[in-house]
């Protein structure tokens, strides 16, 4: 329980820190938000109007007061108004979040389909050609910038073979395949190694030797004995990936014009739509930490050894 409390405290501290940092950034950034709001609304910008808008937006107040107002709004669920879209930030973010969640879900499915069989194959045939092949491919994947991989897939499957749409203005099944595949290949390079290591560890355990001695087939040993044990460490990793997928995939969303939250954020930055950027960073921070927290909890729950409270701090 104490650990839980510490963890929550750490999460709150991180949230405050991250939000403060982003707020500072938008404060020192070039450009006058009041002018941007007016320009976005097709007003003729006069000095009086500027002054009035600044007062309305609270921009004439000291920095800390502005920050406090913003945080106060957040606590009431109000993330402010997006300059460019003239919509509440929360609404704009939730629009993009649907697309990102869908993309993340499909990616995870791909990751499992790709990395689990390959990892097992490479571990079972350790130091034989399948192992070398899988390891080589995983090395190539690690060294390839994922946005470039995305561009190449787009070029080959979208333009040359015309199997998939080049851009997706809305969330469609056909449109999700290529971005999800790009992300999955990139993630799988890491997973294949992890799966391989975990399976190798298990292969040398006594219970495997025991099962062999009892005359069980290798296949049965693998599926019934090794796999359930190996899944546990992989769940943490998968959880971390979900956090990463929900937050750090802006580049891929841009490559495929996928209507996700990262796409929204990059355009918000280009339009200097600061409330939207702040909301985005904060939202990602919350999602990421909550997911990691849940993963930790599930990990502790799934592993009986950890339930006794022996887990090292970290």
């Amino acid at each position: 329980m104490k650990r839980l409390g510490n963890r929550l405290l750490q999460m709150i501290v991180t949230l405050i820190g991250v939000s403060f940092l982003t707020f500072c950034l938008t404060y020192i950034a070039p450009g006058d938000p009041a002018a941007m709001v007016l320009e976005a609304g097709d007003h003729i910008v006069s000095e009086e109007l500027l002054q009035k808008t600044r007062e309305e937006m609270g921009l004439d107040k000291p920095f800390l007061v502005q920050y406090a107002n913003w945080v106060g709004g957040l606590l009431h669920g109000d993330m402010g108004l997006s300059y460019s879209a003239k919509k509440p930030v929360a609404e704009k973010l939730s629009e993009g979040f649907v697309g990102t969640c869908f993309l993340a879900a499909v990616t995870i499915v791909f990751v499992v389909i790709i990395s689990l069989p390959l990892g097992i194959w490479s571990a079972v045939r350790q130091n034989e050609w399948p192992d070398y092949l899988v390891r080589f491919c995983s090395f190539v994947g690690v060294s390839m910038p994922n946005f470039w991989l995305g561009l190449m897939l787009l070029y080959i499957f979208g333009l040359k073979l015309m199997l998939f749409p080049i851009t997706s203005s809305s969330v469609t099944v056909k449109g999700v395949i290529l971005p999800a595949l790009t992300l999955a290949v990139y993630q799988s390079t890491k997973y294949v190694r992890q799966v391989r290591t975990v399976i190798l560890d298990e292969l040398h355990q006594d219970y495997v030797i025991g099962a062999r001695a009892r005359g069980l087939s290798e296949r049965a040993i693998l599926l019934k004995h090794i796999l359930p044990n190996a899944l546990l460490p992989l769940i943490t990793l998968l959880g971390m990936s979900i956090g990463w997928l929900l937050g750090g995939v802006a580049v891929i969303e841009i490559v495929f014009s996928w209507p996700g939250i990262g796409n929204t954020a990059v355009h918000a930055i280009m339009m200097r739509d600061y409330p939207l950027v702040e909301g985005f960073v904060l939202w990602i921070a919350i999602v990421y930490m909550v997911i990691n927290f849940l993963v930790d909890l599930s990990y502790a729950y799934l592993d009986p050894k950890l339930r006794k409270g022996e887990q090292a701090d970290g």
């Binding site: 937050g247 802006a250 990691n292």
Partner: peptide
């Protein structure tokens, strides 16, 4: 704090802003 958060997101925000 920095580790408990996906760095790329913040890096995009910082560089962009």
């Amino acid at each position: 704090m920095m580790l408990a958060f996906p760095g790329v997101v913040l890096a995009i925000a910082i560089a962009g802003i």
